[in-house]
Computed example of a mutant assay.
Amino acid sequence: MYVAVKGGERAIENAHAWLAEERRGDTSVAELSIAQIREQLSLAVNRVMAEGSLFDPDLAALAIKQSRGDLIEAIFLIRAYRTTLPRFGASLPVETGDMACDRRISATFKDAPGGQVLGPTFDYTHRLLDFKLAAEGEVAPAEQGMPREEATPHITEFLQGEDVIQREPTSDAVPGDLTREPMEFPANRALRLQSLTRGDEGFILGMAYSTQRGYARNHAFVGELRIGKVAVEMEIPELGFAIEIGELELTECETVNQFQGSKTEPPQFTRGYGLVFGQSERKSIAMALVDRALRWEELGEDNLGAAAQDEEFVLSHSDNIQATGFLEHIKLPHYVDFQSELELVRKLRREAEERTAGYQEAAE
């Protein structure tokens, strides 16, 4: 490390001080508060929480502020902090069918049971810069609809009622925890989904896009996309029953995919699944597409050699913290390694020059 270099420790302290100065920026401009980041950069906060595996909007906003907006650095900070927290227990599986939906759409049924709720989305905007925002004026409040408080059935339940979509197997087994145990291959679907929801959004998006372009033969419809809050319950041994300890905002996506059938399964639809903290619909859709591509073996399909079908490739390279660590370590001092390689290159060049001179003498 640079500490070993003469004057290195003092240089590092100065670098930290300079970093803090750069983070603050022009002191004549008001400093961003944690509340401002949490409320006005909520999609960035959601990504940090999802890929950092910790639902805490205030801490995610603090990490974004500390990292100067570098979301991968913020995710790193959140994951590092998460390792210091005690584990009190495990919550029960959340019931997304009981979600109070702010947004709920389906691309498969026009008149979806329970209705379509457009909610807050960029989908219908013109993607033109709004210079009124630069004037720092207050935005006129819109007439807002109330979130659906009643249970909203999943679209796939109606397809399942017609027996035209594969039934998902159920199990009482406790799934593994990727945050406490290292990934092993082959991984079951529960671990794959954990890895995908923690994975880098850009990487998962690229893998999902590849499946749509033919690298996995994965033609999908968004059966349903929903965003809203769900209750989190935990069983208390002393009480003998579960109590609600809070609520989470989640984005859930179920894709419906064509399936021609196999030796053991009739022609039917199959599913891809994505579930992410906060309002993260691009990530949840991409996650569902990649999840479906990775299911080729259990569904008896052919492996077309697509990257998105390669479990080890996808899951080993989707984690942006691991990728960042491996990539950025090459900027640390490698003086000894480089000097040995430099000496080797010099030796090889001398030997090559000697051989060339020998050939010229022989020719003469």
Rank of each mutant, 00 (worst) to 15 (best):
L85P: 03
L43I: 11
C101A: 15
A220C: 04
F76S: 08
A17D: 08
T108V: 14
L225P: 07
E351Y: 01
S53D: 06
G176P: 00
M99W: 07
L54S: 09
V3E: 02
S262P: 09
P120R: 11
A50M: 03
I12Y: 02
F122E: 07
D70E: 12
L327F: 10
E353P: 05
G176W: 00
P169H: 13
H16T: 10
V230S: 10
Y209H: 15
I321K: 03
F109N: 09
E361D: 11
G199V: 05
I105Y: 01
L133H: 13
A15E: 01
G25R: 01
G52K: 06
D56W: 05
Q260E: 11
P333M: 00
K331P: 04
L294V: 08
S91V: 13
G115A: 07
D291H: 08
S67Y: 01
A44Y: 02
G97R: 12
F277D: 02
M1I: 08
G325T: 07
D98N: 13
G358A: 14
T27D: 00
R295P: 02
R79E: 01
E150P: 04
G214Y: 13
D98P: 04
A50I: 06
R271T: 08
F326W: 04
P147M: 09
V3F: 04
A151V: 15
R68N: 03
E181F: 02
L191W: 00
I155L: 00
I321A: 02
R24I: 08
M183G: 06
G228F: 07
H16P: 02
G8L: 00
A107K: 07
Y81A: 13
R10Q: 05
D172K: 15
R104K: 15
L299G: 05
P175E: 00
M207P: 11
I204M: 07
P147K: 06
T152I: 12
Y273I: 14
P267H: 08
F259V: 04
A362T: 13
S42C: 12
G325W: 00
L275P: 03
L32E: 01
L250E: 01
L344A: 03
A100N: 10
L92E: 14
D26I: 06
F313G: 10
L43F: 05
G25T: 02
G89H: 08
Y209L: 14
E150K: 13
A35K: 14
G199A: 13
G223F: 00
K132I: 09
L239F: 12
S28M: 03
S195N: 13
L315E: 05
L348S: 09
Y2N: 05
G300W: 02
Q194N: 13
E252M: 06
A306C: 06
L129T: 14
F277N: 05
E224T: 13
I330C: 09
R10N: 06
V174K: 12
S53H: 02
A308H: 01
G261W: 04
S67P: 05
G8I: 02
V336T: 11
